[in-house]
Design a protein around this nucleic acid. Structure first.
Length: 793
RNA sequence: GAGUCCGUAGGCUAAUGGCAGACCCUCUCGCUUACACCGAGAUGACCCAAGUUCGAUCCUUGGCGGACUCACCA
């Protein structure tokens, strides 16, 4: 390690040396046998196929602040790094990189490509985290508690399947065929939480329908005329007097000539379109889907799983929905049934992952019951402390808006398989505790067999030797894996004793944008498994924006790459900036390279203050402390107490600002200036005791400052402290002893000093020269000797 | 369309029913037995309107503007 005196400026080379040694020594290893209180952080696993972005960098810095502080507070910190390797992002990356489609090359081959992609991804992120100085429990992959884990590891997937079977047996998971959100590009069902919206211009077509009984025409406006083939009924609002005479009559669907009833229904909005709407049994949008559910109409979809029109669409069969729409509009116009067309902008649901427009297609899928537990979830979420408090509203409002059970099965490939087999009217359940891939594996002999209808146990696979079993091909939603991350971290069903001791997890740190997915699903799953709230605390953070306050995105080209910052300015500057810039739980903050660079000044100031203090030997015995010195000792004791309180509630922003202010203003500009002469004591103006008091206090203040700053800037502080024989990595957090002494005097001192410096400047006297005619204020009279020596009064 | 949060110097922020404090930038001056990546100092701000109040940047209402969440048109 470099010596302090050899370091002119804090730099990246020193950081590399320190962080490398931390990484190699496994310095922050978790001890599962500990008697200390366990503090566990359920970190959000980043996807490994892309390098970490600024948001990752900053939020992991915050998690590291929390972890290092809790270690100092005497807690055993479990702080694992997870790597997300499951699901659609990996599949989409594989499709792109190797230019393959799973629909063409088949599942087996495609999974191999996914595995190939993953093995070639170098997990660059691990290196970036190490350089940031993140004190993960381990930097080695493995199955030890606290080791780096992969979300696609057999161990993790085993637990996912364990919980699936468990919930399935309890009847909380069921299969049902419903209209659901269908992503035609990825060819899978997706949940409401995976939907985004996009503004789109479409034609609003006013189409004429003939009324059978009267022969008159009515006009119905629609954006989706291609769904006319599955029209089932027509509604108008009961309050709408224009259409009263239509009640109970029959309409004939143009082109397809289907006869459908006309009824009154309050879902029809008299002010929208013509006031009459046709309802298609294929849904068409989420509202319509809900309407069908309400009316108990069996859904029939004219759209196939490939997103193309199917045989139910008649002459439109085989066309993409867009083309089908064009064709039928043409047809309607030819038959003179188009009254008019308007352009309208409406927002269409699109898939968050593929950005494809969602279709509503009926598919049998597995569902996890959640509607029955809305009240419970709301209740137990009260047991979780939200930081900031207001972020609880995001969760509450989502819980309220949950309207259907959670569809958990997906028709994709690189994810945890649904662990079931089928044979005639029997279902085989995978044994719990082993990772199983039914799509390419026969059921083990000891797999339990149940009746598909009654769900009653029929023995095991052994008992049905002549049956042929067909493995389930569907996989589970990635959130079904992710929503048990804390159970996995705490060894659920792996190490019961440990789980009992450590559950619930201490902290869930995560972004506000995944409250409705990750947080909500985790609370739900945690409740279903344990009946309790799964976290003690949750810290919800906002976003890092670019210099102008815009979202950073590749397409705008405004990305600030943390890897670059690490190379140029180093981790400590980045961390200090992250802490001082703002309160990430309160609002977004903008990222500017200049500001990060500017934090290097503070690092160098700390370095120089330390060098200065260490020019003096620390007295081996505590000397009698002068009044001036005691004033500053009291000050930092109060500061300690304040910092302690705020760190505990995840506020590192105010402490960081206060500590920086202490370093620059209180310590460097005022205290050091005041006691310099006394510490040197070259002219023997002071007694040895007085001089010793100054030396002792300089060291005391520095040591305390380093300790308080350590969670934020661990490298520079621990390096300096080491030279003083203190190991900040293992030192205990100081017990704050706040005083009620008059801290106002520090302000008065600073004001007085400033006054003298100003006066000297105005008179053109060098600061070193003596000055006459200055009266020391009464309240500061007890510091007269120091003040006179300092200012040469 | 509904809800939540927010609007303070050129930028980013803090506190506050009476005086609005830092930081970065800019400007001026300086060189002091740790530090020129330094020191001292200066300029500069409460979105608008109404109400409550002796007094509002702060509380209330409305408007304008922004961020986010939810919903969304047959």
């Amino acid at each position: 390690m470099p010596q302090l005196k050899d370091i002119k400026n804090w730099n990246v080379e020193i950081e590399t040396e320190i962080t490398n040694s931390w990484k190699q020594k496994e310095q922050f290893k978790f001890n599962p046998k500990t008697k200390k209180k366990i503090y566990s952080i359920d970190t959000p696993p980043p996807y490994i196929n892309s390098p970490i972005h600024m948001g990752h960098a900053v939020t992991y810095c915050f998690m590291d602040f929390f972890a290092r502080f809790r270690r100092m507070k005497g807690e055993e910190v479990l702080f694992p790094l997870g790597l997300d390797r499951n699901g659609l992002p990996i599949e989409m990356a594989a499709e792109k990189k190797y230019k393959v489609s799973p629909f063409k090359i088949g599942r087996e081959k495609f999974v191999e490509y996914c595995e190939k992609l993953l093995s070639e991804s170098s997990a660059e992120s691990i290196d970036s985290f190490a350089k940031l100085g993140i004190s993960f429990s381990s930097y080695k992959e493995g199955t030890d508690i606290g080791a780096i884990y992969n979300t696609d590891s057999p161990e993790y997937r085993t637990l996912t399947q364990w919980t699936f079977i468990d919930l399935y047996k309890k009847g909380l998971i069921y299969e049902d065929s419903r209209i659901n959100n269908w992503d035609p590009k990825l060819r899978t069902t997706i949940a409401d939480s995976e939907i985004e919206r996009k503004e789109k211009e479409t034609d609003f077509n006013y189409v004429k329908f003939k009324v059978k009984e009267t022969g008159k025409y009515i006009t119905i406006a629609t954006t989706r005329p291609e769904l006319l083939c599955t029209a089932v009924l027509i509604i108008y609002n009961p309050k709408d007097n224009r259409y009263k005479d239509l009640k109970g009559k029959t309409a004939i669907v143009p082109i397809f000539n289907i006869e459908i009833p006309i009824l009154e229904h309050e879902d029809a909005d008299p002010d929208f379109g013509s006031g009459i709407a046709y309802m298609s049994s294929s849904g068409g949008d989420q509202d319509a889907v809900r309407f069908l559910r309400k009316m108990g109409i069996k859904p029939v979809s004219p759209i196939g799983i490939d997103g193309l029109m199917n045989e139910k669409a008649g002459f439109l069969e085989g066309l993409k929905t867009d083309d089908a729409r064009k064709k039928i509009i043409e047809e309607i116009k030819n038959k003179n049934l188009m009254e008019k067309q308007e352009k309208m902008i409406h927002s269409v649901p699109i898939s968050e992952r593929s950005k494809a427009e969602i279709e509503f297609i009926e598919m049998p899928e597995f569902y996890l019951k959640q509607m029955d537990y809305k009240k419970d979830i709301k209740k137990i979420s009260k047991d979780i402390n939200f930081y900031p408090k207001a972020s609880k509203k995001i969760l509450d409002s989502w819980i309220e808006s949950v309207s259907i059970d959670w569809p958990i099965s997906r028709r994709r490939y690189y994810a945890t398989p649904v662990p079931l087999w089928y044979s005639e009217n029997l279902i085989a359940l995978a044994p719990q505790g082993k990772y199983i891939e039914p799509w390419r594996q026969d059921p083990p002999k000891d797999a339990e067999v149940i009746d598909a209808e009654t769900k009653k146990s029929k023995g095991t696979v052994k008992d049905f030797p002549s049956n042929k079993w067909k493995g389930e091909e569907r996989v589970l939603d990635t959130w079904f894996d992710s929503s048990i991350s804390e159970l996995n971290m705490l060894q659920y069903h792996k190490d019961d004793e440990f789980f009992k001791k450590a559950y619930p997890a201490s902290l869930r740190p995560q972004g506000k944008e995944i409250v409705r997915t990750w947080l909500y699903y985790t609370v739900l799953r945690g409740f279903l498994e344990t009946g309790k709230a799964c976290f003690t605390d949750t810290w919800i953070h906002q976003h890092i924006l670019d210099e102008k306050g815009r979202k950073m995105s590749k397409s705008v080209g405004n990305i600030i790459d943390p890897q670059e910052i690490l190379k140029e300015d180093g981790a400590e500057a980045l961390r200090l900036w992250a802490a001082t810039e703002g309160d990430l739980s309160k609002g977004d903050f903008t990222c500017s390279k200049d500001k990060i660079k500017a934090e290097r000044k503070t690092l160098n100031k700390l370095l120089n203050v330390s060098k200065f203090v260490m020019m003096f030997h620390k007295p081996s015995k505590k000397p009698a402390i002068t009044k001036l010195d005691q004033l500053f000792i009291d000050h930092i004791e109060n500061l300690t107490s304040e910092v302690d309180k705020l760190y505990l509630i995840y506020d590192f922003n105010h402490p960081a600002q206060d500590l920086r202010k202490f370093l620059w203003d209180t310590l460097a500009s005022n205290y050091i200036e005041l006691v310099k002469n006394r510490a040197y004591n070259e002219e023997d103006k002071f007694t040895d005791d007085e001089s010793a008091s100054a030396k002792y206090t300089l060291h005391f203040l520095l040591e305390r400052l380093l300790t308080l700053l350590y969670p934020i800037i661990p490298q520079i502080t621990s390096l300096i402290a080491k030279e003083k024989g203190i190991d900040l990595l293992t030192i205990e957090w100081p017990k704050p002893t706040p005083t009620t002494n008059n801290q106002q005097l520090i302000t008065s001192l600073a004001e007085f000093n400033s006054q003298i410096w100003k006066t000297k400047k105005e008179k053109g006297i060098s600061l070193r020269d003596s000055i006459k005619g200055i009266k020391i204020p009464k309240e500061l009279s007890e510091f007269e000797k120091d003040l006179k020596a300092c200012h040469k009064i």
